[in-house]
Nucleic acid binder design. Structure first.
Length: 131
RNA sequence: ACAGUGAACCGGCUUGUCGCUGCUCUGCGCUGUCCUUUCUGGGACAGGACAGAGGAGAGGAAAGUCCGGGCAACGCAGGGCAUCCCGCUUCCUAACGGGAAGAGGUCCGCGAGGGUCUGUUGGUGCAGAAGAAAAGAACCGCCUCGACCAAGAGGUAAGGGUGAGAAGGUGGGGUAAGAGCCUACCAGGCCGGCAGUGAUGUCGGUGCUGUGCACUCCGGGAGUUGAAAGUUCAUGUAAACCGGCGCAUACAAGAGAGGGCGGCCCGUCCGAGCCGGAGGGUAGAACGAUAGAGGGCAGCGGUGACGCGGCUCGUAGAUAAAUGACAAGCAUUCCUGCAAAGGAAUACAGAACCCGGCUUACAGGUUCACUGUACUU
């Protein structure tokens, strides 16, 4: 938990289990979108936030542009992930890019911030409803 | 100087902040095992997604996945047929459909040069709404006979028009008119001599000579799959259950289910299991996997591709997939401007087992050799 406060992005914070991904994309989990970025998320019992980033070949045929967007998204998450504090239990998030245009990094950061805040709001709402 | 041709090469740099993935070293108060043995200790080894330090981290095409090879697993008595690929010569190479040096035809360019094609005098088939006729050719024409003319009979590929192609072409002789019928030259084939490793070239002989396409034919080659290959460990475990077909044993009856040998046939071998249903488990880790037909340097051999030995260098290894994000400065090019300066642009593109090629994309730049034009001395 101590590493999460820093702006790091280690292997533990990445979502790479095939099983978890299937569960996440099977439907029924909440999603938030700020076009062209969309996030699907669900709680986990690991106690960490784990994320993945995906840009479809459908939107970008060339790998260079796909990589560019994925890197922008990872940086945007890494430098703004404190928006999910305080953390109460783990969370798995998948970020999906659904546009065939790139955006300047500044814009990508704005979209990411927007999404992270809204995820946090929905979590708080859910907890208060339960409690 | 300008325009161009052919090769070879480069394809941004520096600094700062915060990050990512391996590697090495050190530490560890974290985890595991073991030792010591009674201390609420000490020690050893291993691990780690932990901490610190150091150092490394996309390409000339990493791309398309079009060829070839390594590597791996499985397969492999033999014969025939079919299928697919290659096709001027010699050489290079692990190999190639790649490369080098050459040969002949043809097209483009003033030129340096560039593009393209090339096994096959054989056999079979086809060749339009053109033409008389498309390979055993007579429509018109020409000539002979027909006493002359005409009908008719015969000879004839010089001329006409058609066509991509009309009996190899042109001139001369010859003839009733004509024809490689004869002859000279030219293009090609065949035979022989000479030169060349060879494709071919050249000299002599030989009247041998229609075009295009497809198939056939000739020569050479091809086992299948493809790193999601495959090996090991972990997890789970099922040689279980139900149905069908078959084998074995005993009396009788009958002759094998199923499979291998690339697709088929012959032949041959294995053979007690095979097929379906229902149901269950994993989808993790390590190896494969980064030292290789490796790069660089000069030397020697070769026209060259390339080869040989010598010295030297250490160079990404991810796995839902790292190699970055941001900022500043520099560099290059373009635009505006007398200038100072300002603005814009900096391509194509991202390793995935590894090599050799091919093809395609590409801002800008460098070097060498050569060609044409103009000018100066």
């Amino acid at each position: 938990m101590d590493s999460v406060g820093l702006h790091t992005f280690s292997k533990a914070e990445r979502l790479c289990s095939r099983k978890v991904l299937e569960e996440l994309f099977s439907g029924g989990h909440p999603s938030v979108s700020a076009f062209p970025l969309r996030a699907v998320f669900m709680p986990n019992d690991v106690g960490l936030v784990r994320i993945m980033v995906s840009v479809s070949k459908r939107y970008f045929k060339r790998a260079v542009l796909r990589n560019r967007i994925k890197r922008q998204l990872r940086e945007a998450y890494r430098l703004q992930k404190e928006a999910l504090q305080p953390l109460d239990g783990g969370l798995d998030i998948a970020f999906l890019w659904s546009s065939n245009e790139t955006l300047p990094t500044e814009k990508v950061f704005q979209k990411m911030r927007n999404i992270l805040c809204r995820i946090q709001e929905s979590r708080v709402e859910k907890q208060t409803a339960q409690g």
